[in-house]
């Protein structure tokens, strides 16, 4: 039942994270991982690079809290989260969320829940460089809606 949260400038190795999720626990029946990448376009403009700022300290607390909420909702073994900060380029990996559990329903649900809340609650901000100059990315309403749908009661499915 470990939770690993890392905020770092360096890139990460998804395969290594996957191996860490499978390690030493024969009770695990499912692993779900998500990797978010940097797109080369946004709001109709081509984006050449991205800078990610964060609120050190609060970021880790919010992510811990999101993991705690996920554990209260689903039966989970490990949770591993990595979020990068600093300068990024198109196709770079930005975020990793990996969850292991006995059954796939819990892992699918928890992984999506964690990403939806990470996007709307964790204090990260993106500034993107386009041909028109540098601009801060606006929050999306669709992300708020994605996190709000978890407020409706759901039941954990066993598979």
């Amino acid at each position: 039942m470990t939770t690993s949260i890392r905020v770092q400038q360096a890139d990460f190795d998804g395969q290594r994270e996957y191996q860490a999720l499978r390690q030493d626990c024969p009770a695990i029946g499912a692993i779900v991982t998500f990797v978010g990448l940097m797109r080369d376009f946004n709001e109709g403009d081509s984006v050449s690079s991205l800078y990610l700022e964060h609120y050190a300290g609060m970021t880790e607390k919010v992510l811990q809290d999101i993991c705690q909420q996920a554990r209260e909702r689903w039966q989970l073994q490990q949770i591993r989260i990595i979020h990068r900060v600093g300068a990024l380029e198109p196709s770079d990996q930005i975020v990793f969320v990996g969850v292991s559990s006995r059954h796939r329903g819990d892992a699918f649900g928890a992984c999506e829940f964690i990403m939806d809340f990470l996007k709307t609650q964790a204090p990260f901000w993106k500034r993107e460089d386009t041909a028109q100059g540098s601009r801060w990315v606006e929050a999306r309403q669709s992300d708020d809606e994605a996190s709000r749908r978890w407020q409706a009661p759901t039941s954990s499915t066993k598979t």
Partner: peptide, 26 residues
């Protein structure tokens, strides 16, 4: 103190208070 608060949250004068726009990570 690194937790989102309401605008009527009392302050006693030795806290860490942060102002920021809506978050856009992930």
């Amino acid at each position: 103190e690194q937790q989102v608060a309401d605008w009527d949250r009392p302050l006693n004068g030795d806290e860490e208070v942060a102002f920021f726009p809506p978050v856009t990570g992930g």
